[in-house]
Amino acid sequence: MDELAQLNNFRSEVPVQEDLRAEAERLMAGMSAPVRSDFRRLGLRAASAGGLAAALGVAVFVVQSQPAPAPPPPLIRTVAAVEVLSRAAEHAGSRPELHPRPGQFLVYQSQSMYTAQSEGQIWLTRHKRTIWLPAEGSAVKGVLQEETLAPLPYPGHTLPPNARAEQALVGKPGRPDRAADFDDRAEFLRTDYAYVSKLPTDTEGMRRHLYTQLPFDGLQNYEAWNRVGGLLDESYLPAAQRAALFRAAATIPGVVTVKESQDAAGRKGIAAAMVSPLGVREEYIFDRKTYDYLGRRGVVVDAKLANAPVGSVVSSSALLKVSVADSAPIVE
């Protein structure tokens, strides 16, 4: 027996451990620790809605294939399909720029609606919110102030009892609170100004950024599209990066133009969109004249997958104002 075999034998009487209840409990407790995941609230949040999770599961697990190192080749698109993104890229530098310095905060005022669910009940929860995010670094030092708006029924459903708790909060603006208990986003998913102002300014570089670490599992294009949204909502890119973002977004296979759209504040615009694996067309809406980013909207295109009638709106947001502040409100 050589020394490696001897070593393998050493303490080999320790059996594989089957009783892991204590560890499992601690993991569960840690996993359910309150995390205000403001960052993915609009993304695949609806995936956890009853029945939809299973649908997504099928999509994820059946299409599973070998990951590849590079993103798929950009499609040659008709101009019309991506016109809105090209225009948005052209207009990216037409506004006065914000130049937040380290130590300052970017302040985003917005309104949003997204799917909420608890105990098998589903509804649309709505908020007005102001978030102060550090120009540099994680969101943990950010401050969030929210005001609950009247909840709405999930399309095709009635307003469930659990939504009433929200109704009671309407008209009572919340106190400033910590924006996040921890920010465990991967480095490449950071959206603070210091980070995004170092992103590539060329289309190909930005495209590679959007596909960072995405496996070719059939969902990669939608995930890349989702990441575009992550850089639009409550994130502020310098004009050069913003233009590159729109140009890179235009190369993602499956992007279409939606001529008539409307954000959560009722502002009308034109949108670029992609249909999600959950049967929802996820639109990023732009002002028809200035091509400023207005917000987003999720419209059902597959009633079965989305568990709601075709054409109904299951999520929306409106980015109302972005500004720079020297400090954030004190959290009590």
Binding site: V14, P15, V16, Q17, E18, L20, E23, A24, L27, M28, M31, R40, G43, L44, R45, A47, S48, A53, L56, G57, V60, F61, Q64, P67, P215, D217
Partner: peptide
């Protein structure tokens, strides 16, 4: 599904991560 698919999914549905624990905790603990 491969672990990578489970982890990818757990990024949207955190509770799915329990599957990674179920698969590997006995060996890691040993």
């Amino acid at each position: 599904p491969a672990d990578s698919a489970v982890i990818a999914r757990s990024r949207q549905e955190p509770e799915v991560f329990a599957e990674i624990f179920r698969r590997h905790a006995p060996e890691i603990k040993r």
